[in-house]
Amino acid sequence: MNKSTIVVGGGIAGMTAAGELSRLGVEVTLVEQEQISGGHAACWDRLFPTRRPAEEVISFLREQTDSKVNTFSGRPVTEILHHESMFTATLSDGTILRGESLVLATGYDLFDASRKEEYGYGIYDNVITSAELEGWFKNHQPVRTKNGRIPSRVAFIHCVGSRDEKVGNLYCSKVCCITGVKQAIEVKEALPACDVYSFYMDLRMFDRNFEELYFEAQKNYGINFIRGRLSECSENEDHTLVVKTEDTLTGKPMKMIVDLVVLLVGFVPRSQNTQMLLKLKLITGNDGFLQPEDEHNGDNLTRIPGLFITGAVKGPVTIANAVADARATALQVYSFLHSNR
């Protein structure tokens, strides 16, 4: 009997699930909308907390999938149908894929920082996102202001688009705190003379070695952590930036002039998923991410037998957790395919 599955999304979770299922002898088709697989992680230089190159993780996963899994890349899925216990995925070029089961691993979008207009992203020259900074590191681009100056002060702004009712996102994006700590260290390493400041509400160093890195950042790198949520940014004539906040530990309003502002943008649900998922009548939570059937004992299951969800499509997740989740999903898919449906 032919056991087949379609994995939609070639990021960390999708690749892991596809690789595991392929090893278990399932006929896997992996669909990735970009030309290159790896998802958001492919844009990363080094990963928190150990600062290991992201490339290592991705090439491991590529070895698991390349030549073992039937892969369609550079083509997004436009429609998913479920009919008589068969799944049909239509790609943008008209290709139709069929499978007995389907794994949704479509991931997340980054929060559009221009929606937090008061921080001036897209308006002021020297306000960038954490994703852009990571891109600079990856491409070995030096950390400079728009007009090429070496910044003498850099400010990291935590929780941009996360834990913020004003933009409608109440949830925590989990990875930004530690990303901010990692990137602050990296900026300091690249520019030892530069003062680096981090403005935070509170730092959630929840996972293994996170707290250690935060300590290191203060002790060894002299990163200044200031507890205060940024109220607004404004731009001076010379394109330096004024950040306004309240230092809530001293209880005083404060302003600081900096050369570069890095906004730590969080996760948002994928907007292009919406129509597709509406047709499948999958349930989303108040945060807009997909809701599993059972948050404890069935967190990869959906209301449709044979349709599984994995990774950041269910909400913010670290790479390590996405890998673990995808492996668990692969096992669920395997037992589904071998059950007496």
Binding site: E117, E118, G120, I123, Y124, S231, E232, C233, S234, E235
Partner: peptide
Amino acid sequence: SHLTPSIIR
């Protein structure tokens, strides 16, 4: 308007 700097600009 300080929260919508595009207007000021």
